[in-house]
Amino acid sequence: MRVEIWSDIACPWCYVGKARFERALASFPHRDSVEVVHRSFELDPDRAKGDTTPVITMLTRKYGMSEAQAEAAEDGVGAQAGAEGLEYRTRGRDHGNTFDMHRLLHFAKAEGRQDELIGLLYRANFAEEESVFDSDDRLVALAAEAGLDADAARAVLADPTAYADDVRADEREAAELGANGVPFFVLDRTYGVSGAQPAEVFEQALTQAWGNRSPLTVLSADGADACGPDGCAVPGA
């Protein structure tokens, strides 16, 4: 069975949702027969490369929050991340364009190291002090940590056309499937799970998708936490 996950490195609920899905997968009896593929979805595709802003500032502008409200929202996400055993820096993070990260993830997929790289990118963006938006050197170092050739990764980043079509194809397919926010999980093109659902929802979807082949049915509880072009769900809002 194949599970495709549309996500963005800038999406905190994708970070949390990945952990919840992996917890469900770990207890799934057929987990060794499940292939996980990460697909591209940009939350801020019009933002220019190098145009970064503090996350708290981005939240105040996007949602019309006060700084105190934005900080409280980040604290809420951080608490949910912490409940999944994830580190989450609620202050001092940047927000920026993620297109190059998606291109690098497609390169990693071709090399069989995609899951390793996306985990490192999430960790770097949400848990570490050094920004992933500052320079290509940071991304190259993460690629090397994921087991990729550093020179090859640098060459991908230096060529803006490398894997660009793959990113755009993923984004078109997300639109065709009706995904207007992330994370969005598609299980064997049979079931879709929208948002950072509880692990129990993923367990249900894995079980149903394993034994059933039918047109895509989206399992989406009201109020599921997700990120879309207009922003990310804010705890308590």
Rank of each mutant, 00 (worst) to 15 (best):
G92L: 06
G85A: 09
N97F: 06
Y63A: 12
E67K: 12
A70E: 04
N97T: 09
V77P: 02
H95L: 14
A79Y: 02
E67I: 05
G64I: 00
G92D: 07
L59T: 05
A70R: 11
T98V: 00
F99Y: 14
A70K: 05
V77N: 02
F99A: 08
F99R: 13
A72V: 07
T98H: 04
D94E: 15
V77R: 15
D75E: 14
D75Q: 09
R103N: 07
G85Y: 02
D100Y: 09
F99Q: 04
E71I: 07
G92H: 09
E84I: 04
T60E: 12
G92T: 03
T60V: 10
A81K: 04
D94T: 11
E74D: 00
Q69N: 07
M101T: 02
G92C: 06
A68K: 11
G92W: 08
Q80P: 00
G96L: 04
L59K: 14
A81R: 11
H102K: 03
R103Y: 09
H102D: 04
E87G: 15
A81H: 06
M101N: 01
G92R: 07
H95A: 13
E67V: 12
K62Y: 02
A79T: 11
V77A: 04
G96C: 12
T98Y: 01
Y88H: 13
N97R: 14
L59S: 11
Q69C: 00
E87N: 13
D100T: 10
R93H: 08
R89F: 01
A70V: 03
E87C: 05
Q80H: 07
R91A: 06
R89T: 02
D75T: 15
E87W: 04
V77M: 15
D94G: 07
G92Y: 06
G82H: 10
G78D: 00
Q69M: 09
E67W: 09
G82M: 02
G78F: 03
G78Q: 07
E74V: 00
D75N: 10
G85D: 05
A79L: 12
G92S: 03
Q80K: 14
D100S: 09
G96M: 05
G64E: 06
